[in-house]
């Protein structure tokens, strides 16, 4: 049985739907408070998939995800690196993306901790909840998006603008980009809801086993979550579901 750990901290708020998504995908899932890992009551090593879900951890004070990133880097950095080196999968959604980047696990978990990418305030200056089209980069090594071409999922964030130093941008493993309905990645706001450089919505490390994105695939698991299902009819599964199924299958097959 594949075992997934969904990590929770003060202000995590997408944990229940993330647990549901992994359960639907066939994993056993434990929702665990970060304190219980730090106190060694629970061990990351007992799991194959680690998820940092969405939310406003520690209120997103200072900057989104910063305080949890600081905590993970200082208190669980080694555990998480060992988990990764042992072949585990790591998924960060929304706040989880912000945390993974600010803790230095993305774009490269083996980097020296000098941060070169970040997620900054949306260009609009606003928190925005809207549905976006994503194009999946088929060249990406990401194991979570294997076989996927596009998806329609919601974003809900105030600090989701992907920013990277220009010199490292070509080396980033882009997994998903914001596009318009036709798949055009140059369509601008609101298709790119936050002003992300290169329309980047999600990235992975070079192994493809650490993946994080700003949009919420766990909010499009059922067909009736699609905002236009009353026009188009409801499919059995939502567009975000394959991400979770891919992760579970990858673990089952490896």
């Amino acid at each position: 049985m594949v075992k997934t750990i969904v990590l929770r901290a003060p202000g995590t708020n997408c944990d229940a739907e993330t647990v549901f998504a992994f359960e639907q995908a066939g994993s056993e899932v434990d929702l665990v408070h970060v304190n219980r890992i730090i106190s060694h009551e629970r061990k990351l090593a007992d799991y194959q998939i680690l998820v940092i879900p969405g939310g406003f951890t520690y209120g997103d004070d200072i900057a989104a995800g910063k305080v949890l990133a600081n905590e993970l880097r200082l208190k669980l950095g080694e555990d998480i690196r060992r988990f990764f080196e042992a072949g585990g999968l790591i998924l960060g959604i929304c706040n989880g993306f912000q945390v993974l980047v600010k803790a230095g696990f993305l774009p490269d978990p083996r980097s020296d901790g000098h941060l070169q990418v970040t997620l900054a305030a949306n260009d609009s200056g606003k928190f925005e909840c809207r549905w976006v089209n994503l194009a999946v980069n088929k060249e990406s090594p990401c194991v979570f998006t294997n076989g996927m071409e596009s998806m329609y999922v919601p974003v809900a964030h105030g600090e989701g603008k992907f920013v990277a130093a220009p010199e490292i941008l070509p080396d980033i493993n882009v997994v998903v980009r914001y596009t318009d309905e036709q798949g055009d990645a140059g369509a601008g706001y609101p298709h790119n809801p936050n002003g992300s450089v290169g329309n980047i919505a999600g990235i992975c490390d070079s192994s493809g086993r650490i993946f994080a994105l700003m949009p919420h695939p766990e909010r499009h698991i059922r067909g009736t979550q699609h905002p236009q299902w009353t026009r188009l009819g409801a499919k059995q599964y939502g567009d975000g579901f394959p991400i979770f199924r891919n992760a579970v299958r990858w673990v089952q097959q490896s």
């Binding site: 708020n13 549901f20 606003k126 928190f127 925005e128 909840c129 809900a156 919420h216 909010r219």
Partner: peptide
Amino acid sequence: VRQYDHEVQGSSV
């Protein structure tokens, strides 16, 4: 409306 998170909990139909 857009500045409220109306999708969290994944329950909206």
